[in-house]
Write a protein that binds this DNA or RNA. Structure first.
Lengths: 261, 261
DNA sequence: GAGTGGTCTAGACCACTGA
DNA sequence: CAGTGGTCTAGACCACTCG
């Protein structure tokens, strides 16, 4: 039960949140304020990926609200995949290192049944100055330091995905091809444990394109072969963009799955 | 306040749902049972798309549970987009006819800003016997009657989407090209109001393909041009498949957007 | 003002986990 | 067994909509 790093007192809750508060210019429910405070604890690293957060009863005491209010805050954070509840055990900070989350962001599936072994092969990892489009996506200034990683994913030894990845240099100091290759598990797991960057969500733009001189050899297809182009912008806490990635998928025998609801 | 069609009594709730119930072989919480009952009311058409369902207090009385339990059931149905809550007004059955849901299932967006005018042009609408693959997807027997619709969507008069749509003949008796053309609004709105079929969710499989002899002229591109292939299986209540659709999208100037979380 | 959904509380008890 | 999250209840009050 680690409770050392917990501040003795919390900032007072906004008056407007309590029912007694005056009128309602920008009313914010209590559980929303609790949610914000908890997100802050996640962002600053008071609670780390994989660890248990304090119990609902403890949090209720700490925030001076009822357990039900804490519960509603946790419910939402859990629906957003920031936390994971485990009955009888506690509530834990979500992590990309878990088995279940291994492929949370990789939507490519084989058409048939067999799962297939996924392997990562890193082509290069360079530090350089940000091109204009990357800077815009990552909310950097053009010319700021960025890290560019290129890699291929193989399914059963067949190259299927070619990724061109851009990261803010400031956050990823010391990222090298060796560290990428040596790490067992998904890249986002390494980002989390080695650089303290936790990917929360991402937006993707998908198009059909023709393989060009760079991608064709990497995926062992002829130039002009149709490929799925997947442009991804990933965010950490507070909607801060921290990864810009352009993927090219060979969808012969595979498909990008999506659930609409 | 329509209350005529409401049955005077509800079937008794499973004993295991009440805390006093014996052991717990397949324990199901009360709110889950309420959810099932409410889904049934939706499926059989007691509550129709666009209409208000009874208030939480009424439902609590009807099901003989507390308002909080009904609330939790509605919360989940609302999260699944089956119901829509409107503070101060009531809770309503979701409908595809609403402005907000117009493009809930169409994820194609222009790369730039302008929204663009969407137009639907129907190529044909035929009744025929189901091919094997369509039958499998729709859980029909091969040879069962199906309706096949083909259409093109244009954005600002430019053809962008070519859809090949398959529907169970049993459910869509009397669907013709005229009715499709005459209907103002999205196709799922017509399915809902004219055939009582409400699409709840869908699964899509996305690939990159080359335009062939059929799709190339329809989308005004050359054969071999890369297109996004979107295979969609749509479901109504109780995970019953009711539409199988193969779309081809020209993603020059457009993209399929997706949010990962 | 009456009726709706939305928030918050306090308390009881259940289901699950692990020592 | 104690401790965790999960369910259910009853009641109070707030915010919103509309007549």
């Amino acid at each position: 039960m680690p409770s050392a790093a917990v501040p003795a007192t919390e900032p007072p809750l906004a008056a407007s949140g309590r029912p007694e508060g005056g009128a309602s210019p920008a009313f914010s429910p209590l559980y929303q304020q609790i949610k914000t405070l908890m997100t802050r604890s996640l962002r600053v690293g008071e609670w780390r990926p994989g660890e248990a957060i304090p119990s609902e009863i403890e949090l209720a005491a700490r925030f001076k609200v009822s357990q039900g209010t804490v519960r509603k805050a946790i419910d939402e954070l859990s629906a957003e995949n920031l936390l994971v509840r485990r009955q009888g055990k506690g509530t834990f900070v979500a992590t990309h290192a878990e088995q279940k989350n291994q492929y949370r962001f990789l939507r490519l599936m084989p058409d048939g049944d067999e799962a297939g072994r996924v392997q990562r092969r890193f082509i290069d990892c360079r530090r350089l100055r940000s091109p204009a489009d990357v800077a815009r996506a990552l909310a950097l200034k053009p010319g700021d330091a960025v890290v560019n990683v290129r890699r291929v994913l193989t399914f059963n030894a067949v190259p299927v995905v070619f990724d061109d990845i851009w990261l803010p240099g400031q956050l990823f100091k010391g990222l090298t091809a060796e560290r990428l290759s040596d790490y067992k598990g998904p890249m986002y797991g390494l980002f989390e444990s080695e650089f303290g960057v936790h990917m929360i969500r991402a937006d993707e733009k998908i198009r059909a394109v023709a393989a060009d001189a760079v991608s064709a050899p990497a995926l062992a297809v002829e130039a002009g072969h149709p490929l799925l182009s997947v442009e991804r912008l990933s965010f950490t806490y507070d909607d801060k963009p921290v990864e810009f990635r352009h993927g090219l998928y060979n969808t012969a025998g595979y498909h990008y799955r999506n659930a609409l609801s």
